[in-house]
């Protein structure tokens, strides 16, 4: 399977990764090669096989409904690139 630069651009947009025009062709070429490798899977019949999402089959644990986290505002905001009045600050979100 070979993918074109338009697809690459679309995927990069979905993934929020800026790609320069020079990066498009090599990227398309590499992804195409990897996808070709993946297509060997088509040689294996899988009708009726249950998809496997988890490495081990365990029961989902549930925790008690208890408040156990203190206020970690200062510590978490200290990690942020930009804050203002106890908020994370980002460029204007245009609705």
């Amino acid at each position: 399977m070979s993918i074109d630069t338009r697809t690459v651009q679309n995927v990069a947009r979905l993934a929020r990764l800026q790609l320069s025009p020079e990066e498009l062709d090599p990227c398309a070429e590499q992804l195409s090669r990897i996808l070709t490798l993946m297509e060997t899977l088509n040689g294996l019949p899988t009708e009726g096989v249950e998809p496997m999402s988890h490495a081990v089959d365990i029961r989902l644990p549930e925790r008690e409904d208890q408040v156990c986290n203190g206020d970690q505002r200062e510590a978490l905001l200290a990690c942020a690139p930009d804050t203002e009045q106890y908020h994370f600050r980002v460029p204007k979100i245009i609705e």
């Binding site: 899988t46 096989v49 249950e50 998809p51």
Partner: peptide, 9 residues
């Protein structure tokens, strides 16, 4: 989904 099935195999 194909890969998940092969993973099972």
């Amino acid at each position: 989904r194909k890969a998940q099935k092969v993973r099972r195999l």
